[in-house]
C-alpha cells in the first residue's frame, strides 16, 4: 500500500514532527515500504488465530491501592523551563 505525500504531512502534523519539504519524498517512500511489508504480513491466512494485544504472553499484574509516593515537587520543578506558584508554565493555550 502506498501512502501519499499529503498523508505524510498530516501524520507529521498530528505527531508534531517537522518534516522539511526536501525530505518529504524520501519519508513517503520509506513509510510506503513499511506499509508494503505490513501488506505482506496481512496476506497470511490467520483464520482461527487469536489477535495478539501484546508480544509478551503474560497478563497484567495489579498494584494494591496504596499511596506510595511523596511530594518531590521542588526537585521536579528545578528542571522545568518555567514555574510559578507551584504551576508548570507553558505557552498560552486557550480552548
Amino acid at each position: 500500500m502506498a501512502i501519499s505525500e499529503d498523508e505524510v504531512k498530516k501524520v507529521a502534523r498530528l505527531a508534531r514532527l517537522a518534516v522539511p519539504e526536501e525530505r518529504l519524498a524520501a519519508y513517503t517512500q520509506s513509510l510506503s515500504n513499511i506499509l508494503n511489508l505490513v501488506d505482506q504480513l496481512s496476506a497470511v491466512d490467520t483464520t482461527g488465530v487469536e489477535p495478539m494485544a501484546h508480544p509478551l504472553d503474560m497478563v497484567q499484574r495489579l498494584r494494591e491501592d496504596v499511596v506510595t509516593e511523596t511530594d518531590h515537587r521542588a526537585q521536579y520543578q528545578a528542571v522545568a523551563p518555567e514555574v510559578e506558584k507551584g504551576l508548570y508554565l507553558v505557552p498560552k493555550v486557550i480552548e
Binding site: 498494584r63 491501592d65 496504596v66 499511596v67 506510595t68 509516593e69 515537587r73 521536579y76 507551584g86 508548570y88
Partner: peptide
C-alpha cells in the same frame, strides 16, 4: 486512594503539583 497507574495520592484540593 492512589492514581490509576501510579502511587500518587488522588486527594482533592492539595497544593498544585504536590501529587
Amino acid at each position: 486512594n492512589s492514581k490509576i497507574f501510579s502511587g500518587s495520592s488522588t486527594a482533592y484540593g492539595a497544593e498544585a503539583n504536590t501529587q
